[in-house]
Amino acid sequence: MALSEIQIKKAKAAERPYKLADGEGLFLLVQKNGSKLWRLKYRYHGKEKLLSFGAYPEVGIAAARELKRAAKGVLAEGRDPMVHKPGRDFEEAKTFRAIATMWHENRASSLNPAHAKRVWSRMEQDVLPVLGELMMHEITPPEVLKVIRKIEERGALDISRRAKQCIGQVFQFAIASGLCDSDPTAHLRGL
């Protein structure tokens, strides 16, 4: 059952945060401090994800529902609403995947073909699923560290080191090409 404006206004802070469902994954999260935040729960490639739309009353119920419809439309097109959310300045050419592809093509001819294939295979398996659709300027050291730790969890310490090195090389290539300003792996030296 859809929320009403009255229900939202009457929602008070409680000892624990709680949700007021509006339907189709949209809900209002009422925090302990009384703030009310719009969220959309959805699944993309089998993984549950959570999209934030802003705080009530700045984002009203009609606006939250419209944002939900837009996100569901993006999902129906087979794209992740987290990446392609309304109002986000998305440029395919400035995603990590696009720049990593340019980096690899730029250096592949100077590498042994088998080694070039291994490098790209590792990127496809471990790095691109996490960072691929993010814009270069959106990638932070904690996001890179998450990729590295996930590889380390399976005991592949050498591969994790190489993945960090490749991510850093992609960022250095992007900086030299004028496509981004900083390298988040610089903050991970020695880890």
Rank of each mutant, 00 (worst) to 15 (best):
D22Y: 03
P184H: 00
V127R: 02
A63T: 11
P129A: 10
K19Y: 12
E24V: 09
P57K: 05
V74A: 12
S35K: 14
G190V: 01
E124F: 06
V83M: 06
Y42I: 12
Y42R: 04
D158L: 09
E58T: 03
A176T: 12
R16S: 11
K68N: 04
A70R: 08
R43F: 11
R161D: 08
E58Q: 03
E105W: 04
I6P: 00
R65P: 01
R65N: 05
E143H: 07
G190L: 08
V144H: 03
L179V: 09
E133P: 03
A63D: 05
K36C: 14
R162S: 01
I139S: 05
E124K: 06
L128N: 06
I8N: 08
G178H: 01
E138A: 11
G178V: 07
H115K: 12
Y44H: 15
L188S: 08
A174C: 04
S4L: 14
T185G: 02
E77A: 04
L111D: 03
S109E: 07
A11M: 11
I159T: 15
M102R: 13
I167Q: 00
A71S: 13
A55Q: 09
G155V: 07
R97A: 10
L134F: 11
G190I: 14
M82W: 02
R43E: 02
A63V: 13
H187V: 11
H104E: 02
G168N: 03
S182K: 06
H84M: 07
A11C: 14
L40G: 00
Q172W: 09
I8P: 07
G25C: 05
D158K: 12
K9P: 04
A55G: 12
K49M: 12
T101H: 09
F96H: 02
K32V: 15
H104F: 08
P184R: 11
I151H: 06
G25R: 04
G190R: 12
S35T: 15
E66N: 10
E143C: 03
A55S: 14
P17K: 02
A11S: 14
P57E: 03
L28H: 00
I99P: 02
V59S: 05
L128C: 08
D80R: 12
L40A: 03
T95R: 11
E91L: 06
D181C: 01
R88S: 08
R79Q: 07
G73W: 02
E92Q: 13
N106A: 14
E58M: 04
A98H: 00
H84R: 01
V170A: 09
F53G: 00
L145H: 04
S35P: 15
L128F: 08
L157E: 00
D22H: 08
E153Q: 13
K32C: 11
Q31N: 15
A93I: 14
E133I: 04
Q125L: 13
E5F: 08
K36A: 15
A14T: 15
P113W: 00
H45E: 05
L51Y: 04
E124D: 04
Y56F: 13
M82K: 05
K19C: 10
